[in-house]
């Protein structure tokens, strides 16, 4: 086990002073090395849960307990946002090396690590390019490289491919599986798409809104390694139907 989410709730107080329950009492554990997906309608608290896991937001009640020591530095958590949020004035290589620079890693070691990670995401030939010269999918790959370059214990991804077209999205899914097989990171992933959830995940937590909470958690028993062929399996389609039913 990597993290235990113990009875965590989050209530925001809006400007008018009303309380908005973003997340009702939630208990969940994140296993070492797993691919866990949160799926649910918008507003059910997926991003809020992810932000609390990242330490960006404090829970209103409950606790988030890390195995061993809680993350003391940023280098323990990688975050991939819905948009790439690259620094537009830095080259792709400099963007990927950016976290290491801010942690005080020396330039040579930083360049080495950044180049390796760029190779991993298939952007080796674009190290010197500026973000504006990349396509949407390539930008998001650079953002993934930036989140992986410091080998965080946990990688959080908040709808990372939802801004991409369907074809690019399928390709990015396969690449994400390959990257994960390579680095063995623990990933908590948020999506709206049942296909994405069933295809990528070891486990899927289905959430419901008002109040936001986890309804059920499924272990997706599809064969590994996943690939295009999995999408033809009856079991894959059974999972899609199951997840759609849960979301209704």
């Amino acid at each position: 086990m990597l993290i235990e989410v113990q009875g965590v709730t989050k209530t925001f107080v809006s400007r008018g002073g009303e309380q908005v329950v973003a997340l009702a009492e939630t208990t969940l554990d994140v296993q070492q090395g797993e691919f866990l997906t949160l799926i649910g309608p918008s507003g059910c608290g997926k991003s809020t849960l992810l932000r609390m896991l990242a330490g960006l937001v404090e829970p209103t009640s409950g606790r988030i307990v890390w195995q061993g020591t809680a993350p003391a530095r940023g280098s323990e958590v990688g975050f991939v946002f819905q948009e790439p949020v690259l620094l537009p004035w830095l080259s792709v290589l400099d963007n990927v090396r950016f976290p290491l620079d801010t942690f005080g890693v020396d330039r040579r070691a930083g360049d080495e690590a950044a180049r390796q990670t760029l190779e991993l995401v298939g952007l080796k030939d674009f190290a010197r390019a500026l973000p504006k010269e990349l396509s949407g999918g390539m930008k998001q790959r650079a953002a993934i490289a930036r989140a992986l370059v410091y080998k965080p214990r946990l990688v959080l991804m908040d709808e990372p491919f939802s801004a991409l077209d369907l074809l690019t999205r399928d390709r990015m899914n396969d690449e994400l599986l390959a990257i994960r097989a390579e680095v063995g990171a623990t990933i908590v992933f948020v999506t709206h798409s049942v296909e994405e959830a069933a295809y990528l995940s070891d486990r899927v937590a289905v959430m419901s809104a008002r109040p936001g909470q986890i309804r059920t958690i499924h272990t997706i028993d599809l064969p590994a390694p996943r690939g295009e062929a999995v999408k033809d399996l009856p079991a894959f389609h059974a999972w899609l139907s199951q997840l759609r039913r849960d979301l209704r």
Binding site: G74, F79, Q82, V85
Partner: peptide, 22 residues
Amino acid sequence: PPMMSELCSILRLTPAQRFFRV
């Protein structure tokens, strides 16, 4: 952008790093 500011928090940038680098 708010996400850029969250990135700074994720990476635990010092206030000076946040200002001069981002």
